[in-house]
Measured scan of single mutants.
Amino acid sequence: TRVETATETAWISLVTALHLVLGLSAVLGLLLLRWQFPAHYRRLRHALW
């Protein structure tokens, strides 16, 4: 049971790290898009909202 718990903890930390990385890359990508294509971003936002 001790090994299982350790594996579970490792998986949880791995998944958390993955989610953090994905979230950060998504935010960075959005910022980059907004910085590179302001007109396109505004049009996209206008279409979405």
Rank of each mutant, 00 (worst) to 15 (best):
T1K: 10
L32G: 04
V15S: 07
R43I: 07
L48I: 13
I12C: 09
V15H: 01
L28V: 09
W35P: 15
A6R: 08
W49D: 00
R43Q: 11
I12N: 05
V21K: 01
T7I: 10
L22G: 10
R42W: 07
R34L: 10
R45Y: 05
W49Q: 00
V27Y: 05
L32K: 03
L22W: 00
H40R: 10
L14W: 08
V27R: 04
W35D: 01
T1D: 05
R2S: 14
L28I: 13
A6Y: 04
T5W: 00
V15M: 15
L24M: 13
W35E: 02
L24S: 07
E4T: 11
L22I: 10
L30M: 12
A6H: 04
W49E: 00
S13T: 14
L20C: 11
T1R: 06
S25G: 12
L20V: 14
W35V: 14
T9Q: 10
S25M: 12
R34D: 00
W11A: 02
A17N: 01
W49M: 00
A26P: 03
E8H: 09
L22K: 02
L24G: 07
T7C: 01
T9N: 09
L20R: 02
L18C: 07
I12P: 08
L20F: 09
R2H: 14
L18T: 06
S13P: 06
A39E: 14
Q36W: 13
S13Q: 15
R42V: 07
E8Q: 08
A6W: 05
A39P: 05
Y41T: 07
L33S: 01
L48T: 01
F37I: 06
L48E: 01
W49I: 05
L20P: 04
A39G: 15
R34N: 04
W11C: 05
I12E: 03
A26Y: 04
T1F: 11
L20A: 13
R34F: 06
L30R: 01
E4H: 08
A39Q: 15
G29A: 12
R42C: 07
R43F: 04
E8S: 11
H19W: 15
H40T: 11
R43P: 05
P38F: 04
A17E: 02
G23T: 11
